[in-house]
Computed example of a mutant assay.
Amino acid sequence: MEEQDNLIRQQAKHIQDLEEMIRNIRAQRHDFISHLQAVYGMLQMGKLESAREYLAEVTGDIRILTQTLKLKSPEVAALVQQKAALAASRNISFGLVIESDLAKLAVRPHNLNRILGNLLDNAMDAVAFLATRDRYIRLEINEDEENYIISVGNSGPGIREDLMEKIFEPGFSTKGENRGLGLAIVREIVQQHGGKIKVSSPPTIFTVTLPKAGAEEQ
Rank of each mutant, 00 (worst) to 15 (best):
Glu2Tyr: 13
Glu3His: 10
Glu3Pro: 00
Glu3Arg: 13
Ile8Met: 07
Arg9Tyr: 07
Gln11Lys: 15
Gln11Ala: 15
Ala12Ser: 10
Lys13Asn: 12
His14Lys: 14
Gln16Glu: 14
Asp17Glu: 13
Leu18Ile: 13
Glu19Arg: 12
Asn24Leu: 03
Asn24Gln: 08
Ile25Asn: 11
Arg26Thr: 03
Arg26Met: 03
Arg26Cys: 06
Arg26Lys: 09
Ala27Asn: 13
His30Asn: 12
Phe32Ile: 03
Ser34His: 14
His35Trp: 01
Gln37Ile: 10
Ala38Phe: 07
Leu43Ile: 06
Gln44Gly: 07
Gln44Trp: 04
Lys47Glu: 11
Leu48Gly: 01
Leu48Gln: 05
Ala51Gly: 08
Glu53Phe: 08
Leu55Asp: 02
Ala56Pro: 00
Gly60Gln: 11
Asp61Tyr: 09
Ile62Asn: 04
Arg63Asn: 14
Arg63Thr: 15
Ile64Ser: 09
Leu65Tyr: 04
Lys70Asn: 07
Lys72Cys: 12
Pro74Trp: 05
Ala78Arg: 10
Ala78Phe: 02
Val80His: 10
Val80Arg: 02
Lys83Cys: 01
Ala84Met: 02
Ala85Phe: 04
Arg90Tyr: 01
Arg90Gly: 00
Phe94Asn: 05
Phe94His: 04
Phe94Lys: 02
Leu96Gly: 04
Ile98Phe: 11
Ile98Cys: 12
Glu99Lys: 10
Arg108Met: 09
His110Val: 08
Asn111Pro: 00
Leu112Tyr: 04
Gly117Val: 06
Leu119Thr: 00
Leu120Gln: 01
Leu120Val: 01
Asp121Thr: 13
Asp125Glu: 15
Val127Pro: 07
Ala128Met: 10
Leu130Glu: 12
Ala131Ser: 12
Thr132Phe: 02
Thr132Leu: 03
Arg133Gly: 06
Arg133Lys: 12
Tyr136Arg: 03
Arg138Tyr: 12
Leu139Arg: 02
Ile141Trp: 08
Glu143Gly: 09
Glu146Pro: 00
Glu146Thr: 11
Glu146Gln: 09
Asn147His: 14
Tyr148Arg: 09
Ile149Ala: 06
Val152Asp: 03
Gly153Lys: 01
Asn154Ala: 06
Gly156Ala: 11
Pro157Phe: 02
Glu161Tyr: 08
Leu163His: 10
Leu163Val: 05
Glu165Ser: 15
Lys166Glu: 15
Phe168Arg: 06
Phe168Trp: 14
Glu169Phe: 13
Pro170Gly: 06
Phe172Arg: 03
Ser173Trp: 03
Ser173Glu: 08
Lys175Arg: 10
Glu177Asp: 14
Glu177Ile: 13
Glu177Lys: 11
Arg179Gly: 01
Gly180Ala: 07
Ile185Ser: 11
Val190Trp: 08
Gln191Cys: 02
Gly194Thr: 08
Ile197Trp: 07
Lys198Arg: 12
Lys198Val: 11
Pro202Ser: 14
Thr204Lys: 05
Ile205Gly: 02
Ile205Arg: 05
Thr207Arg: 07
Thr207Cys: 03
Thr207Phe: 02
Thr207Lys: 05
Val208Trp: 04
Leu210Ser: 06
Pro211Asn: 07
Ala213Cys: 01
Gly214Asn: 07
Gly214Thr: 01
